[in-house]
Design a protein around this nucleic acid. Structure first.
Lengths: 172, 172
DNA sequence: ATAGGAATAGACCGGTCGGTCTATATTTAG
DNA sequence: CTAAATATAGACCGACCGGTCTATTCCTAT
């Protein structure tokens, strides 16, 4: 399941074959269609959901111990850069590659939209908690999010996470 | 050729079939493999190159008539938002979808890296020409580029170009 | 101990994929 | 006018795609 997510993130929805996923996960086809009757599409949505929740967890872990917003952003970007490096620079935003690359389906689009909103809301909440005025907090969270998505893309093109690590100085 | 580019941009490298491209372009297979002996991969690289050059043209058109950097950014984002709307919100960054979704190939990655660098260099040059100090100009160009990539992604998820139109107030 | 549902296992299917190849049409050069 | 080069056209290929289906194994409740 998590392994499946990595493959989707690396190669995009249409870039991985079902057989490749199943082989890597060590699971036969029967089991997949037992748990996910709609097959690949369901699997991709589930994998994106797992990845999205993991990012939320990283956001919390980064901001909870921070004494101000900037420090939280710095920790957050550092953690994501490390995640990027672990996967050898092949993985960008863990959800957009999976969902935007998939079928042109309302369910996929809405899922992605919802995930992005959750991320920004969570960052905004931490910013407010750390003393930012509410309107600034929302703007800064959006700034961070948009730049982060861009950094993921650029980092993949460069096979180098430095642009992610330098993000805090760019958006704070 | 240009039509092929749109398809790649919408559906990603693996999301379009060769036959679909050829049908839409009204071209038989023989012609494709006459001009692009390496088939789909060559075609994708060429399509990305065409799209990248078009973006450069849009950058120039936006900044040449502007009286300051902010005005150029505003015009630029407006033009891109219009492009986004024309394609019914299905097209994001015209090169990353084509190239990042493709095979895990150094040629693809390097092409993408080169395109991104060209874009940022061009924006930086305009910023300098419009009176920004050189170090600020490069930073602002990167800020704009990263946020723009993010906006393209978010705009697709939302099927709405507003986030692109609001970009100038976020990065200037 | 055993009946019955849940889960595993993978053979199998039609369709489509990217790519090759031969035959025909069109243009260019002498 | 004709021969050679260039470009068009699409039938055809093996491989692999996502998905279905049947057979078997595993677990659990009685």
């Amino acid at each position: 399941m998590i392994e499946a997510g990595y493959l989707f993130q690396q190669k995009g929805y249409h870039g991985v074959g079902l057989s490749q996923i199943l082989e890597r996960a060590g699971v036969p086809k029967g089991s997949l269609y037992h748990y996910f009757p709609n097959g690949k599409a369901d699997l991709a949505l589930a994998a994106a959901d797992v990845a999205a929740t993991e990012v939320l967890r990283i956001i919390d872990a980064s901001f909870e111990t921070a004494k101000d917003y900037q420090e939280g952003v710095t920790t957050f970007c550092y953690k994501l850069a490390k995640y990027f490096d672990i996967h050898e620079g092949k993985i960008g935003c863990p959800v957009s590659a999976t969902l935007l690359g998939g079928p042109d389906d309302a369910a996929f689009r809405d899922a992605l939209k919802g995930i992005f909103e959750k991320w920004m809301a969570r960052i905004t909440a931490h910013a407010v908690r750390l003393g930012q005025p509410a309107p600034d907090a929302a703007l800064n969270a959006q700034r961070l999010f948009l730049s982060l998505e861009g950094s993921w893309t650029l980092a993949r093109a460069q096979r180098n996470a430095d642009v992610i690590r330098n993000l805090p100085s760019l958006v704070c």
